[in-house]
């Protein structure tokens, strides 16, 4: 038996050292202060900030949210004050917090990504940088970056050149083969991958005969996409060596465990915070108990354990 206090929940996500394997997903947790009085910091390993772009963006027309069975559609449209304004006015709130802060970067060209990365790289408050190449809500003159392995690789190379901070690349599930994009990102210098962003979707109002979202299409999050995300993590974990931040519909300890077992070193919690701000704390507490009960004392003992062993794999291939 291992006692709960002996369990070490710390993880290393491509150089980002976290005391707990729980990140708050980008766009769902603001800068953390919004939830500060509702949630225990003990559940938070890191907060991923809302994606920042070079220029300020007002975002999409309303409505931006629709609740759907087991989840929600959002089309916020990367509303943000721009990286310069954010760093000047808001970043001061980010120092001396009991968890790490990850900056998230979005853009419409390789140059924009490079600029925002440079600005974030200068700041000591920012422990790591996440590249959001997969926002479904801005359809930048065609495709999101993550749909094109070559474009993704170019963005990652440009970002890599600006910083030595851990670089996490967040991928879209809206592709034919996510492992191909994942390999490309790894080869271009990603330290870790965040898998997955939202799944494209739509809801239609039967009174007005129009899409419910102001933007038309949106990104589906919440438990509705969990199996999609688990499979993506499972497949990517076999294709790359870099650690994975699994996300998509995590609400409970058991959901989180599925991702760890599939091969994620850490998880991110987004939409579930809207249902109950105590979710992260519950998962962290539950995780320590789960490991202790099984006589395990570190996260590495469960990560990827759902993957078939070498023997099984050979059998699968021949059978």
């Amino acid at each position: 038996m291992v006692s709960v206090s002996e369990v070490d929940l710390s993880v290393d996500v491509g150089g980002l050292h976290l005391r707990r394997p729980t990140l708050m997903a980008s766009g769902c947790y603001g800068s953390g202060e919004e939830f500060a009085l509702l949630a225990e910091p003990a559940g938070i390993g890191a907060i991923v900030l809302k994606s920042l772009t070079k220029e300020p963006r007002v975002g999409n027309p309303m409505p931006r949210l629709v609740h759907t069975p087991s989840g929600m559609l959002n089309a916020i449209g990367l509303a943000n004050p721009g990286v310069d304004w954010y760093l000047e006015h808001e970043a001061v709130k980010l120092s001396s917090l009991p968890y790490a802060i990850v900056g998230s970067v979005a853009g419409f060209s390789v140059d924009e990504y490079r600029y925002v990365c440079e600005r974030l790289a200068e700041r000591s408050e920012i422990a790591a940088i996440e590249l959001n190449v997969s926002c479904p809500n801005v359809a930048s003159e065609g495709e999101t970056f993550a749909c094109d392995p070559e474009l993704t690789a170019r963005v990652v190379r440009a970002a890599r050149a600006t910083t030595r901070k851990p670089l996490i690349v967040k991928l879209s599930p809206n592709v034919t083969d996510i492992t191909e994009v994942a390999r490309g990102a790894e080869a271009a210098g990603a330290d870790a991958l965040a898998i997955v962003n939202t799944v494209r979707g739509m809801a239609i109002d039967v009174e007005t005969w129009r899409p419910r979202l102001g933007n038309g299409a949106g990104g589906l999050s919440g438990p509705a996409i969990r199996p999609i995300a688990v499979l993506a993590v499972y497949e990517v974990a076999r294709a790359v060596r870099v650690p994975i931040v699994g996300q998509g519909g995590i609400e409970t300890l058991f959901d989180a465990l599925e991702f760890f077992l599939a091969g994620a070193s850490a998880i991110a919690i987004g939409t579930a915070n809207f249902g109950d701000p105590r979710v992260p704390e519950r998962i962290v507490t539950g995780l320590a108990e789960y490991l202790a009960e099984r006589g395990l004392n570190s996260m590495s003992e469960i990560v990827g354990k759902a993957q078939p062993s070498r023997a099984e794999r050979t059998w699968g291939a021949t059978g």
Binding site: F35, L38, M62, P63, R64, L65, I76
Partner: peptide
């Protein structure tokens, strides 16, 4: 009246 996500100002889903 609007559809809310977080209700606390974190998600920018409810703007006017």
């Amino acid at each position: 009246e609007e559809t809310f996500g977080c209700g606390v100002g974190a998600c920018w889903g409810c703007v006017v």
